Simulated assay, not measured.
Amino acid sequence: MKLQKMYHTTDVHVAGEVFRIIHDVPLVHYRSLQQLEEQLPATFSEEMKLLVKEPRGFAGITGCLVVPPVSEEADVAVIFFDHEGTVPVHNAGVAAITTALLENGRLKEKQSSEYLIETVQGIVFASAVMEKEQVVSVIVETGSFTLVKSDIPFLETMYTLVQGEHLYALFDAKEVGAVLELANLSELKEWGRQAVQKLARERAVERVVLMDWAEASKGRVKSVTFREDGWLVRSPGFGSTAACFTSLVGKGEIRSEQRLVNESIFGSFLEANLLQVDGDNRFSIRARGFMTGAQTFILDPTDPLPDGFLLK
């Protein structure tokens, strides 16, 4: 068999969310990361489909194209993408590439443990703790989150709007009558599908979050997040965790100096602390990434599915 294309990747999951790190950089000239991102649909679209869609990927996977930094102060640069196209920034993805590049030796360990990751929306700060050549935790600093409005009517309940890298609508799981357990996944998905469709039309909401905050006073919540395409986020979600924190602080349910642990329906969790930077709600979120495989993907020229597919 004559291989048409071959790609080397490393897969990492962060609290259950999967990232595929691609090491084969498109051979195109670019002066900035933004310019490279603009060229990807023309120069890397086939690879993007091949590596994140089925049968090699799935709708919940995020691709991370790692390239040398353009900025002199950055340690590495990355462009994120999913099955719909490029993604400006992905904080969980920052944790994923920091973990993978440190553990495979492509990123040199620093005594300060601090790393600057260049994205198309600017540089993201990450701090990694290593023990015995393994990354045991990564702290990533988020952008700004703002409480837009609380107690907005929706059918027989209320929700809160929080603006971050997405527009989040947060619902109290108890008021909705939802129990956030894996056994109830089918019911949760159906509720989420309907809520996303309605809110996307009304307010251009991009993420819908069901949150159980019965133990918020103890610094613990449980949540599940639905994307605008109806798929579940496979982790508590960095942005969702920050949005939950913003909502609870705004309502006086937790103190700003508290640490908040956000747990997913399958037991993974993220830890968040509020940072006050120029009056904005910004957060440091701690997670741990785990490498799940180093893979070589190929494209057989006779493969009838070179563009992949998605089952929803």
Rank of each mutant, 00 (worst) to 15 (best):
L274E: 04
A169V: 09
P41C: 05
H23E: 03
E263S: 14
F269I: 04
A126P: 02
I298F: 09
E84R: 10
T225S: 12
I152M: 12
E46G: 14
A204D: 01
D212P: 09
G279E: 01
R227I: 05
K53F: 15
M48S: 13
H8T: 11
E271T: 02
K110T: 02
L33H: 04
L147P: 12
A216E: 02
V67C: 11
V14R: 00
P68D: 15
E73F: 14
E38T: 04
F80T: 01
Y159P: 09
Q276H: 05
L270R: 00
F19Q: 03
V25K: 15
T119P: 04
H83V: 15
R56I: 11
V233T: 09
T146P: 09
V124I: 11
V209K: 02
G122I: 08
G60Y: 15
N273P: 05
L182P: 05
A95K: 00
E37V: 07
V209W: 00
A200R: 01
D278A: 06
V70W: 12
S32P: 04
Q111H: 11
S235G: 07
S284C: 12
A92M: 09
M48N: 12
F145K: 09
C64T: 15
E156G: 14
F154T: 13
W231F: 10
P304Q: 05
R259W: 08
G60D: 12
R56H: 13
L180P: 10
R201H: 03
V261H: 05
V67K: 06
F309K: 05
L210Q: 03
G293W: 01
L155C: 13
N281W: 01
L50K: 09
R259S: 14
P306L: 01
S127I: 11
C64F: 14
N104P: 05
G105D: 10
R227K: 13
V89A: 10
K189D: 08
V120A: 14
L3W: 14
F245T: 11
Y7L: 07
A287C: 05
F145W: 06
T86I: 12
G289S: 01
D300C: 12
L155R: 15
H13R: 03
H29C: 08
E103P: 00
E187C: 09
V221A: 06
D229V: 06
D11F: 08
L274N: 02
L161C: 10
